[in-house]
Design a protein around this nucleic acid. Sequence first.
RNA 1: GAGCCAUUAGCUCAGUUGGAAGAGCACCUGACUUUUAAUCAGGGUGUCCCAGGUUCGAGCCCUGGAUGGCUCACCA
Length: 493
Amino acid sequence: MSQETVHELILRRHEKLKELYGRGVEPFGEKYSVSHQAQEILEHFEELEGKEVSVSGRIMTMRGHGKAGFANLQDESGQVQIYARLDDLGEEAYECYRLLDIGDIIGVKGKVFRTRKGEITVSITEFQLLSKSLRPLPEKWHGLKDVELRYRQRYLDLIVNPQVKKVFILRSRIIQSIRDFLNHQGYLEVETPTMHTITGGASARPFVTYHNTLEMNLYLRIATELHLKRLLVGGFDRVYELGRIFRNEGISTKHNPEFTSIEVYKANADYHDMMELTENLVAHAAEKVLGTLQITYQGKDMDLTPPWPRMTMLEAIKTYSDYDFSTITTDEECLKLARKHKLEVYNDTVRGEVINLFFEHFVERHLVQPIFIMDYPLEVSPLAKRKKDDPNFTYRFEAFMAGSEIANAFTELIDPIDQRERFKKQVEKREAGDEEAHMMDEDFITALEYGMPPAGGLGIGIDRLVMLLTDSPSIRDVLLFPTLRPREDTGGA
RNA sequence: GAGCCAUUAGCUCAGUUGGAAGAGCACCUGACUUUUAAUCAGGGUGUCCCAGGUUCGAGCCCUGGAUGGCUCACCA
């Protein structure tokens, strides 16, 4: 729709707008007091039959019959039919009724009855125009299918595609259930800065912005981890933050530049505790929101019932590729093997990194049922505690479902001296050109030097979890306004 | 970032071999006081995504671009 050329359909509505003004009707009205929502009228028909109700909503369909007419009114709860008769409304009001369009928001008052065909209907005695719609809605039968328009003009998607609204209601309930679950266990919800002077807590390229008065760059956070751990140093034993994270990476069906994560930290806990927390939290959300632990994602049945199986990364690689890295111990052997499988490695790529590559290449896509993959290599886990019996690995796990990572957690590294060494390694990688490598965070090390209690930490990708629980194939289906390039002709929506 | 695909009326979509731009819904006019994808009679409202090119002639073929989708890469 071009801004300059006014389409005939829009012109018509502006004409009707003028005529309404001419009749003394205010087309953009004030709040209307309603007695019921559409769905309530349908559900409580027995009590309401013959009684007067008031309801407001958007006109979705209209069927005229000369001196009477039917219309469907849609509010947040659903739709209810209304019936308008010349005899009941009077000449003047009925003329105004005939000036209404699909898309207009009106408030009506009238008696509840059931039509000959059995539909519960409000026979209106008066109505009020609450908001005149100046643009035509998408088609009533097929809805809005063009995915680009659905994302750019989500409000239209929500008006005409009722199943879309359900996804976002579920999303809200899932998040609510997670909060309830953690609050009930004594966790404190906190808020930490989204603008950081140093990025950290994850391997990712950040967004950069500029603060005028401070005359310096700030990074949008790529994780909440390092601030939450500072809070454990400060004496909070159980904290979580649920919020937006920003990563300057590619966009795909599983990635949006901004997404929602939850990170949870618990003092005097380890990654075994975090596994229990993860499976119980997900099961709780599914039970509360879906009422079941048996879910189907894109045709695959999954059982979320705890406990989920646990498997070490080396076991998993052995299971799915026949390579046993417990016997492949040198960087040279690993490099050779990686090159054989055309995995992206450099001359300085080490065993731990190769193991991670093999896991991603051979294993991940097979992990359909929920499972915990434990004991990640040291090199790819700069914030996790080293394993006592094998310092090349860490007490870290990720949870997988439907071939997708949904949680990442570890027994936290609390040794400031080891942490400094790990950061140094990351800084070396960064200086070698790895833009996703971590930065040295001196303040965080300082905090650790004051002493952080042993702790377990957990991060969950909320969008991924919502995708799984709502059977949505794309992350854009669970984001109200996914990131898109702007279009000139819609004013950059 | 790479490959493949899509873009035609407000919406959902047809459009044959390159030969006069179509349907349904929506909209407009008329009929109709319990319809419901209301029905009946009539009316087509368009930058065929954009810019070039080939051709007597392009929605269709070619080149470039835009936006989106999918797959891959990166990542969560």
